[in-house]
């Protein structure tokens, strides 16, 4: 039992020399593309445009509830302004990524934020994905998967050229590590 206690104590008293401020994981260095906020604004913009059009049709057609309808339109404009104007900028401020020789790091989200790290030795596939909006803005998303379904790392909204370079680099580094990835 004494030995056990020793083990536990060693675990608890170990003071980490790594302060969070200096780890790459806490603050990866590279930002998303400059056009990323446009991409993140475009999706919500389309959605809210549909909602607004619907509401305006209601305002025009239904005369008896005009006050309610106008209040709803006002609320929608505020929500849309937040979704299209604020959130993409907020996202851009949070979004970071970095690929080192040993690992892939990302930080994503806005209201809820997430930092991820996957070591390159555990990388299984590297995919590039381009949706219609992403193609419009010349962007791409690189997804790095690992053997764990919970361990995929998505690097969103990269310039196409940066994405291609990243994929090449990742596959190059990953091919050096030929050990099993589970």
């Amino acid at each position: 039992m004494d030995h056990l206690k020793h083990v536990t104590m060693a675990g608890m008293t170990r003071s980490p020399e790594v302060s969070p401020a200096r780890t790459i994981s806490a603050a990866p260095a590279w930002r998303a593309s400059r056009r990323a906020p446009l991409l993140w604004a475009a999706g919500p913009a389309i959605f809210w445009a549909f909602v607004l059009v619907g509401e305006l049709v209601w305002v025009v057609l239904d005369g008896s509830h005009r006050a309610w309808a106008l209040a709803l339109v006002a609320a929608t404009v505020v929500a849309a302004g937040f979704g299209v104007g604020v959130v993409p900028v907020w996202r851009y401020a949070v979004h970071r990524w970095e690929v080192t020789d040993t690992a892939v790091y990302t930080r994503t989200g806005w209201f809820n934020q997430e930092s991820r790290v996957a070591p390159i030795t555990r990388v299984q596939t590297v995919d590039t994905h381009r949706g219609p909006l992403e193609r419009m803005f010349g962007l791409a998303t690189v997804t790095v998967t690992t053997a764990s379904s919970a361990g995929a790392v998505r690097i969103a909204a990269l310039d196409l050229e940066v994405a291609e370079r990243t994929v090449n680099r990742l596959t190059d580094i990953a091919s050096i590590h030929r050990e099993d990835a589970t």
Partner: peptide, 17 residues
Amino acid sequence: WALIDQVTPGQLGVRAE
């Protein structure tokens, strides 16, 4: 952060000064 570093040392990546 300390926990991650304890379980998988070095995985957080230390940036040189």
